[in-house]
Design a protein around this nucleic acid. Sequence first.
DNA 1: CATGAATGAGTCTTCATTCAT
DNA 2: TATGAATGAAGACTCATTCAT
Lengths: 221, 221, 221, 221
Amino acid sequence: MQKAPPAGPAVEDGRVSRAQRLRAERRAQVLDAARRLFAERGYHATSVNDIIVAADIARGTFYLYFESKRAIFEELLDEFFTTLAGTVRRIDVSPGAPPPLAQMLDNLRRIFAALEARRPVVRILLRSAGGIDEEFDRKLADFYGRVAELIERALRTGMDMGLVRACDPALVAWCVLGGVKEVIDRVFVVGAPGADPEAVGRELVEFSLRGVFASGAAKPG
Amino acid sequence: MQKAPPAGPAVEDGRVSRAQRLRAERRAQVLDAARRLFAERGYHATSVNDIIVAADIARGTFYLYFESKRAIFEELLDEFFTTLAGTVRRIDVSPGAPPPLAQMLDNLRRIFAALEARRPVVRILLRSAGGIDEEFDRKLADFYGRVAELIERALRTGMDMGLVRACDPALVAWCVLGGVKEVIDRVFVVGAPGADPEAVGRELVEFSLRGVFASGAAKPG
Amino acid sequence: MQKAPPAGPAVEDGRVSRAQRLRAERRAQVLDAARRLFAERGYHATSVNDIIVAADIARGTFYLYFESKRAIFEELLDEFFTTLAGTVRRIDVSPGAPPPLAQMLDNLRRIFAALEARRPVVRILLRSAGGIDEEFDRKLADFYGRVAELIERALRTGMDMGLVRACDPALVAWCVLGGVKEVIDRVFVVGAPGADPEAVGRELVEFSLRGVFASGAAKPG
Amino acid sequence: MQKAPPAGPAVEDGRVSRAQRLRAERRAQVLDAARRLFAERGYHATSVNDIIVAADIARGTFYLYFESKRAIFEELLDEFFTTLAGTVRRIDVSPGAPPPLAQMLDNLRRIFAALEARRPVVRILLRSAGGIDEEFDRKLADFYGRVAELIERALRTGMDMGLVRACDPALVAWCVLGGVKEVIDRVFVVGAPGADPEAVGRELVEFSLRGVFASGAAKPG
DNA sequence: CATGAATGAGTCTTCATTCAT
DNA sequence: TATGAATGAAGACTCATTCAT
């Protein structure tokens, strides 16, 4: 994924060498520039030239750190996927565990915190990520697919436990995911005014659990 | 939006001339080709050359009918926006009108029918529409904004009538919209197997109204 | 091998259209420039830019007529191979045919005439043709291989007829070919002064047949 | 030609310092790698990077030993030229000397032995040497020119002595040289199967002296 | 001496758009 | 109107060479 520093012996002691640190800094510098530009203009409207100008490096230097324009883009998103995936904890339904709802809210909190710190990438993902490349589209679909599956499994568990009503769990999983994506877009990309992530999270959970219907209202027909 | 036939005397009577009819046919022929290609490959991966080859016209002819590659793309989506907008009827809450739920389901039915007949454009919109152009992004945001507003207004009405529980209607509107978009993507773009639009619509409405919670379950919190 | 004019109906009558004639002229114009440059500077030292400047066309125009830099180079040499191959007649040893030697000289004459008219390509071939590309190297080797085989076959026939002394015909074929190549290089590429192709041809044949030994001299050994 | 060790006190005694020996070893190490690569892939397809990787040295180190990519290439061939030149002994026609033919065959033997030990350079020379550079082309032409002159002089001597028939010695010299080059290419580069250098040498000499004609055959013409 | 990160001129190629016919 | 040859700005990427450490 990363362009390896051209051969050379592996790190000999546990500490990173000065050169390695510099290398990492350089990479970060380029990644930062690229992240910002991709977020602002999208993948296609951002040229390698734009990136090297923004990162203040020479053309060749870019290719010293990244295989290609595609590669840096992928790295940006892969890092994000990994981070995000690490953020989510499976809901623990064993006796003695915190109530599932609290766990869900905690997950959302952690996700929101991660997104908050990565607004540009969130923007990239939600806005310009389709249509770059067949392979990339697949990767993206995979990611969302895994998330949807996670939700679906949770729903099934809930149904088994009698907490979730009878429904098509696959379809509903997509509904939930769609809602989450859209709201994230509003809050972290568009930056809707007065959005308190905590409140947003609760509202999201509330909506997913109970819908919009007033409790006492007649059953829809 | 449409490239005007370059000057010439205006049509004086209500009937369209033979030339005009031919012109319209040509346009349609090009639009069809473009729609298919944009849907298959996305905006950037589709070249003007691809379009003229598929439409079997000369390069120059393309620019006789459309200002630019962007213009034809926009036209495709504009036409779609207009059609879709015409599909939705505002929920009539006056006494004697059909129950709101029935009206909502009817709306969904009409929307689904329209989408069904326009799968390629749906694909374009849901997949490759971001990141083409700043102006286009705005247009897209506008469209979804209008839809969200529609939903939000319905929610407020519902709250006033005591049918909808207390919530942040703006936020919930985005939740609903997101769910709808995602499900549409599954059904009309990915083409999820065994998707009966009627059933999907009902599930969508049910989820939006009642969430996933089993009725008798204890109140979350 | 040639980049086809983008689709379009085949020629309808026997005559070539005006457009086709213009196209052919353009091609020739570019080919001429490329031929001259490749001959002067070699393949690698000639950039597409050099060619379009010399041909006085736009960058894109080049790719309208040729797939790539490689393609125009190959076309140049392929045309040459074809022409040259058409120049050589197999030696006719049937009774009543002109004496083989006269036929050989005639072949050489025709070859020399063809080379004379294509000095730049000869230069390209003899000087810069190696090391462009593995595939091209193969093509080149093939060409010379076929020529050598032709000579070898002639030698075998001669041996069968008792005209040619016992020898390793394959090896001797390479000797002959090498001599011919080298002399061609002197005459047509370096442009050795006072080179009368007719005399050169005779000397070449004489050498190949009789070597340098004076007739009466003692047998070597 | 060689990049001088950057200043430093000149060596004062005849012995080489340890540093110098190391330097020479390094050079050899790089030269070996370059030779192999140039032979395998040709000049243009071999990058400085390829060389330093193969030689296992740092990029900068390369330029400590060689002015440029061109310089190392030239050095490779210069060394070859020098070696080869030292291999050839002028034919001694003074009374009491071994017969000229035996001397010629001895020369060929030594040349072949030298080539045998330097197949990679032979390959470089015969295959990719043209088209690198104007100056280099000149150098190459010079080398072959000197060889041709040597042959021509031998032919003239032979003519004076009545051993060689009347002919254009310059032209015939090129014939001979061409044959030798081509055969060398077959034997040492292509590696023609079953090529016994000794036999090849004899066949080459035989052909050059006596041509292909059967002894008793009627005079051509 | 050795290193290897940095450089930037230069390469081939694409493609939206124009315009003379 | 229709055509399609021509255009040239712009793109991604390579690689010989330099220089601070």
